[in-house]
Nucleic acid binder design. Structure first.
Lengths: 124, 124
DNA sequence: CCGGCGCATCGACGCCCGTCAATCTCGTCG
DNA sequence: CGACGAGATTGACGGGCGTCGATGCGCCGG
């Protein structure tokens, strides 16, 4: 498949992008996360899930708004889940997706020039 | 070339990724920015420039630490400049690169779940 | 005035990724 | 128990991107 099926979810923590030079490994890990969201379809999926009632959305509600085929949507959702940004909860016939709390904020904190204040220090 | 040479620098402003569904255009614009930094070499370039003395770095100082050829480094730098994340200042024979203030923070603000508080409201 | 050097551009190659049609798996309902 | 439907997987195709060697362009020193 096109995505790595066995990566540690989000090894990037308090990576000081702007404070000191990133190592090759740090840069690779961070780029893996960024590549996961550097796609219009996946960005829209994230915002659709986040804005949905209850913070979770059924896959069947995500196919039409994107204008993409069902296999393609399923593929993008898998990428986001593998990246540790979404959780998948299969209830009966339907699959419900929800944001992983703090995942996007951790990413934002790494990019931020100022020291991350939006996350509890326990995140490190 | 591989990058768009005439894009508006950063049309993404206060895009409510987590608040309401992104439009196709918003998602495309945001993904353009994210693609620019979703590469290990470019992430390392950003951190090298940011961590360098005076907040700016000469291109000659960036080639060796990356372990890439000079044309490749020049290409990555161009991508970052075109994305509005770096500025290029050619002084004599040398080219100096520096972070665009607030560019990374704006990106972080878009990703953040909480309302962006790290930027002045004038950014909108 | 000319040779050298820093950096950008060009052309080419190879791989990765987004997309779809077809198929498979497995709960659910009649 | 058999048929239907939701969603995941597979295989294939096409385009985009990262990388390099070769070359072009300007600025400096001799």
């Amino acid at each position: 498949m096109s995505v790595d099926a066995t990566p540690p979810p989000a090894a990037v923590c308090c990576a000081p992008l702007v404070r000191r030079p990133l190592s090759t490994e740090e840069a690779t890990d961070l780029s893996r996360l960024l590549k996961a969201i550097a796609d219009p379809a996946r960005l829209r999926l994230l915002s659709l899930v986040a804005a949905h009632t209850g913070g979770e959305a059924c896959a069947c509600d995500l196919t039409e708004p994107l204008g993409l085929s069902q296999p393609t949507v399923s593929h993008h959702l898998k990428v986001l889940v593998d990246a540790g940004l979404l959780t998948r909860d299969k209830r009966g016939v339907w699959a419900y997706y929800a944001l992983v709390p703090g995942a996007l904020d951790a990413l934002a904190g790494v990019l931020s020039t100022a020291d991350a204040g939006s996350l509890p220090p326990s995140a490190c």
